[in-house]
């Protein structure tokens, strides 16, 4: 029996090995379309952009290889460094606001309240709207002369604000617009995370006499951390390459006050026709996004 079993087992192992080898061969071929797709849509554009970034390439002229002069020029470009600062300021401010408010709204939505369905629908609507519509809407509301925002301030007896026309205020105001749009998205992720939490740790905490704040601080928040990090990764990618609302509302102004790296690269490439230099800015931005996302993913794995 044992021999038979061994014999059958040996035969079946050999067969399995052959089948596995055949399958492995087939599997490699099955991977080809996916690899070709990846090469065509990811590797080629990235490689082409990198090649362009190594050239002095102006629209209307032939490209000329310039041995990384574009990257050397970046180091001495004040607008690039200002853009880097603006990109990070906008990123940290928006992310902090969205995570804090998103968690708060998520906790509210997770409670069983009357009219919850209606409230959820209304709250979710901003991130379903096209960014162009949102940009135009806030541009009108925040116009210092024609908009509703200053009218409301005047009703409250407050002085008018320049909003998007103020070099000091423009980035926080854009962060608030983005927060208005994307907080519901973070809230949805938080609700999903909350509904997946086990109930036992909360029961144990309340039996041990924890207050609601202590339960939130020491039970909910630690268990919700992976969910919040997922939300942070998703929003980080968007925020570091922030473009649409800035382009619609200020085009990077006043001056360069709201010029992020993405806006700067667009202007250099498509308004000033300097494709080589714009590509170098985009490669720098891609490296930045990759570093931040990798750091966040490592943090998530360490939890």
């Amino acid at each position: 029996m044992g021999t038979m079993a061994f014999g059958r087992s040996g035969a079946s192992t050999a067969g399995w090995t052959r089948r596995r080898a055949r399958f492995a061969g087939t599997a490699h071929w099955l991977l080809v379309p996916a690899l070709a797709f990846t090469l065509a849509l990811v590797v080629f554009p990235f490689g082409y952009t990198f090649w362009l970034s190594l050239n002095d390439y102006q629209f209307g002229h032939a490209a000329r290889f310039n041995f990384g002069e574009n990257y050397a020029a970046l180091l001495h470009d004040a607008v690039f460094w200002q853009g880097l600062g603006t990109t990070f300021f906008l990123y940290f401010l928006s992310l902090a606001l969205q995570l804090v408010l998103g968690t708060y709204v998520g906790l509210l939505l997770n409670r069983r309240l009357h009219g919850q369905t209606v409230a959820r629908t209304i709250l979710m609507s901003p991130f379903m709207m096209p960014s162009v519509v949102i940009g135009m809407m806030w541009l009108v509301i925040l116009d210092p002369s024609l908009g509703a925002a200053n009218y409301i301030l005047s009703l409250l007896g407050l002085p008018p604000s320049q909003w998007l026309a103020s070099p000091g205020l423009v980035v926080p105001v854009i962060a608030l617009i983005d927060t208005w749009q994307w907080t519901p998205f973070v809230a949805l992720i938080v609700v999903g995370g909350l509904q997946a939490l086990p109930i036992e740790p909360f029961e144990a905490a309340f039996i041990d006499g924890a207050t609601r704040w202590q339960a939130f601080r020491y039970v909910t928040l630690p268990m919700l951390r992976p969910t919040l990090l997922t939300a942070a990764i998703l929003r980080s990618v968007d925020l570091l390459r922030f473009f649409d609302i800035i382009y619609i509302t200020t085009q990077g102004g006043p001056g360069n006050a709201s010029t992020t790296l993405n806006i700067y690269a667009y202007r250099r490439g498509f308004e000033f026709f300097d494709i080589g230099y714009a590509s170098a800015i985009m490669i720098a931005l891609m490296a930045l996004v990759a570093i931040v996302v990798l750091a966040l993913m490592r943090l998530r794995r360490s939890l």
Binding site: D143, P144, S145, L146, Q162, W163, L164, A165, T250, P254
Partner: peptide, 16 residues
């Protein structure tokens, strides 16, 4: 000029 004129182009001027 109006407050916020640094963002003004034809659209805002037409309106105002």
């Amino acid at each position: 000029g109006p407050p916020g004129v640094v963002n003004y182009s034809f659209l805002q001027i037409r309106e105002i």
